[in-house]
């Protein structure tokens, strides 16, 4: 159990980091908003990969579903942002929940392959349904109303930054709470030994469906935020490559500790930002090398590395 001040400090870390980044990059607010949105998505992925222990390469399906849902909602129903977020989250949760019923009976390679297949089916459907989704051209042409009727979206991404940071903060704080509830602990126990939980009367399948659906909802929320702040939704938001990329971010930071998702997203996106000038082929080589090096030499990612250094400096054993 962490002490009370530590917990509060942890909760404040997201806005603090946001403010520091804002001070460092005052003219890059749209970019910072992008980081915050990606961090929400990677947090949702940590729920599945790190806490539930399920390796997936199809998480972008829920992100894309949320993005398209929010875009279509703004275009055809109401361009109010907050209800749009709800629409996106619902879309992500529905896609996740429906596919989880099928997915959670499988395991290992079969599970992994099905996550890829499901996201590719969704990709194909969206790409074929040009009339609704815009196909390869993407979905655009919607404008958002001011948030809470007060704050207008602007060209420089100022509002996008504060809006995304606020949502990230809420998601992070709620997930931190969730992890120490009986439900969160049961999910971790299932990751450690599903059969053992079954022998205690736990329903492994149902818990996995619930946690996957929840995670899909959060991924959909991130997708909706992305749609609203960028005001374009592209097919690449559904791609397996994007699923792999967010997995790299998570692994870079460290799975199973929400901090890892934040650190990994930040480090990865910043490197990507500066490396954007180098060609995509070398970028791919770089990502591949990062993955191999981390798996071989630093399982647990950067946050584990930091914990090890901290333990070494203070002369204590690593957690």
């Amino acid at each position: 159990m962490t002490s009370f001040p530590t917990r509060i400090l942890g909760d404040l870390a997201v806005p603090l980091a946001g403010l520091i980044l804002l001070a460092l990059y005052p003219s890059q607010q749209a970019f910072l908003a992008q980081i915050a949105i990606t961090a929400i998505l990677v947090l949702s992925l940590d729920l599945v990969v790190g806490f539930a222990g399920l390796a997936t390469l199809g998480h972008a399906a829920m992100f894309g579903a949320g993005a398209y849902a929010a875009g279509l909602y703004a275009l055809h129903v109401w361009s109010e942002p907050l209800t749009g977020l709800i629409a996106g989250a619902l879309a992500g949760a529905v896609v996740a929940g429906a596919t989880a019923l099928m997915l959670m009976r499988a395991h290992g390679l079969t599970f992994l392959m099905m996550t890829v297949a499901i996201s590719q089916v969704l990709y194909e459907i969206v790409s074929k349904a040009r009339d609704v989704t815009g196909g390869d051209d993407g979905l655009f042409g919607f404008t958002m109303q001011p948030v809470l009727g007060v704050w207008e979206f602007d060209f420089f991404g100022k509002l996008a930054f504060w809006y995304s940071l606020a949502v990230l903060w809420i998601v992070f704080v709620l997930l931190r709470r969730l992890m120490v509830t009986p439900f969160g602990q049961t999910v971790r126990a299932i990751r450690d030994d599903a059969g053992r939980v079954g022998s205690l009367g736990g329903r492994v399948y149902r818990h996995r469906v619930v946690v996957y659906t929840l995670s899909g909802g959060i991924a959909g929320l991130a997708g909706a935020l992305s749609a609203q702040t960028v005001q374009v939704v592209g097919l690449s938001s559904l791609s397996v490559t994007y699923s792999a990329e967010i997995l790299v971010m998570l692994v870079l930071g460290g799975t199973g500790r929400l901090w890892g998702a934040l650190v990994g997203t930040l480090v990865f996106t910043v490197i990507h930002h500066y490396a954007a000038s180098i060609d995509p082929v070398r970028w791919m080589l770089f990502i591949g090398l990062i993955l191999v090096v981390i798996v071989l030499f630093l399982p647990g990612g950067l946050t584990r590395g930091i914990a090890l250094i901290h333990a070494w400096l203070t002369g204590r054993r690593a957690p």
């Binding site: 439900f183 939980v197 009367g201």
Partner: peptide, 17 residues
Amino acid sequence: LRIGAIHRQRRSYAILR
């Protein structure tokens, strides 16, 4: 032990502390 207790008391879906 808590994992056992959670199941004994049927709290495994409790998402509030």
